[in-house]
Each structure stands twice: as structure tokens, then as C-alpha cells.
């Protein structure tokens, strides 16, 4: 098993954990955290392919990861803002009870 295979397996396991959390938890904040975990798995893939790829001097993997982290930060801020707005309307962020988008 090459080192790259190990990193790819770790990243796919991390992605599956995030997917399982996003699909099974009832709290909206934890669903958002599961999506963050999936984004982190993709970032690990970028770095592993940059490190073990044929052209590590091109820096593409590192720069993609930096942009991806910035997008994830923006997504977390907007997502938590939406969750706060939903909580103000419904007094509840349980996803089983949130079946309407009208205030």
C-alpha cells in the first residue's frame, strides 16, 4: 500500500462519516458540521495529490485548499445565520419538524 492510498482511504472514510452525520442527525447544526467534514475530506485529497503528484512545485493543491477553506468559512457563517433565522421563526431547529419554509 502506497502512502497515497492510505491518505485516499482516510479521506473517503472521513467523507463517509460526514455523509452519515448529515443524513442521520436531527439537529440542523450537526448537519452543517457533517457538511464541513465532507469539505475537509476533499481538502485532504487535494493536499495528498499535491504531495505525491508528479509536479509538487506547481502549488496548485495548496492554493485550491486555501480557496476551499475560505469558501467553507463563508458557508459556515451563512448557514449558521440561516439556522438562527429559522430558530427565531419556529423556536426549534429539529429537522423533523421543519417541513415548511414559510415564516
Amino acid at each position: 500500500m502506497t502512502p497515497l492510498t492510505g491518505y485516499l482511504l482516510l479521506s473517503s472514510l472521513l467523507f463517509s462519516i460526514g455523509l452519515a452525520g448529515a443524513l442521520t442527525r436531527r439537529n440542523a447544526i450537526l448537519v452543517l458540521i457533517g457538511i464541513e467534514l465532507m469539505l475537509n475530506a476533499a481538502n485532504l485529497n487535494f493536499i495528498a495529490f499535491w504531495r505525491y503528484g508528479p509536479h509538487p512545485e506547481a502549488l496548485t493543491g495548496i492554493l485550491f485548499t486555501i480557496f476551499s477553506i475560505s469558501i467553507a468559512a463563508a458557508e459556515a457563517a451563512v448557514g449558521l445565520g440561516i439556522i438562527l433565522a429559522v430558530y427565531r421563526h419556529h423556536k426549534n431547529i429539529d429537522l423533523n419538524h421543519l417541513n415548511t419554509m414559510k415564516g
Binding site: S16, I17, L19, A20, L23, T24, R25, R26, L95, N96
Partner: peptide, 14 residues
């Protein structure tokens, strides 16, 4: 803490 269709979610992730 888990939603009602958690078995489907776990199977999908697996």
C-alpha cells in the same frame, strides 16, 4: 438524536 430514516442514511454512507 437521530432522524426516523437513520438506517437509510447509514446504508447510503456505508
Amino acid at each position: 438524536a437521530l432522524s426516523s430514516f437513520w438506517i437509510t442514511g447509514c446504508i447510503t454512507a456505508l
